[in-house]
């Protein structure tokens, strides 16, 4: 049974030295699971978001259902899928993509809504066709809010990936779970610290990317 082992230090460097490949694999898997979830979520949320933005009647029903679904705790969402897709990476990824979609759709809709009407009218007056206006005016101006959603979705997913260790996958979460099961602090600390560093790094990276993508806002 688990107990507090006072002789076990927080980090055993010899273990670390012998397990760099395991840690590396866990990190790579963590990034892969997160990347698929965010990019997959973006691929689905973008058309849905545009649709909901264009057809105002869809907005309240779609965003309300998203709100209700988002209430479902992650472990419960994974558990609802297990009878159908098993304790697999597919289950993990369906759950993760679902959460990113819910976050991204709302941010896409609200971001596009925030584009000032005068600017859109001016663009129309200058002869922009709807598709060109969408790509060169609406989306660039909505980008800050959309990227805020991508950042939130990314950081949230990096945390949720650790939970998927319970499904047998889970990137750095596997190290955390191994630390718990073996009553051995080193992998736990490595998995936890790795997940935090990854989340902060991803957030800063996306913030930097956003500055590059929206140079007109650089005065901030």
């Amino acid at each position: 049974m688990l107990r507090l082992d006072a002789t076990d230090p927080w980090i055993r460097w010899d273990w670390l030295g012998h397990h760099t490949d395991v840690i590396w694999q866990a990190l790579v898997q963590h990034i892969q699971l997160t990347g698929i979830a965010v990019l997959g979520g973006l691929a689905i949320a973008t058309p849905v978001g545009l649709l909901v933005w264009r057809w105002r009647a869809l907005r309240n029903p779609v965003l309300s259902v998203a709100g209700i679904l988002y209430t479902i705790p992650s472990l419960a969402l994974f558990a609802l899928l297990v009878p159908f897709t098993g304790l697999t990476v597919v289950t993990a990824e369906i759950g993760l993509v679902s959460y990113t979609i819910l976050i991204l759709v709302r941010n896409i809709v609200v971001g596009l809504d925030g584009v000032p009407a005068e600017i859109r009218e001016a663009a129309t007056g200058m002869g922009y066709r709807p598709a060109k206006r969408l790509l060169t005016i609406d989306i660039p101006l909505a980008l800050p809010v959309i990227v805020a959603g991508v950042r939130l979705a990314t950081v949230t997913t990096i945390g949720l990936v650790t939970v998927t260790a319970l499904l047998g996958e889970g990137g750095l979460g596997q190290l955390i779970l191994a630390g718990l099961i073996q009553d051995f602090k080193t992998p736990l600390v490595v998995g936890l610290a790795g997940s935090v560093v990854l989340a902060v790094a991803a957030d800063l990276l996306l913030a930097g990317a956003q500055r590059l993508a929206t140079p007109w806002r650089s005065s901030r």
Binding site: G67, I103, L104, V145, L152, D203, L204, A207, Q210
Partner: peptide, 18 residues
Amino acid sequence: MRWFSRPGRTDELVLQGG
């Protein structure tokens, strides 16, 4: 007010971090 809060974060608070 909404009975179910909506996912995401559309204020830019989050942007100040970076």
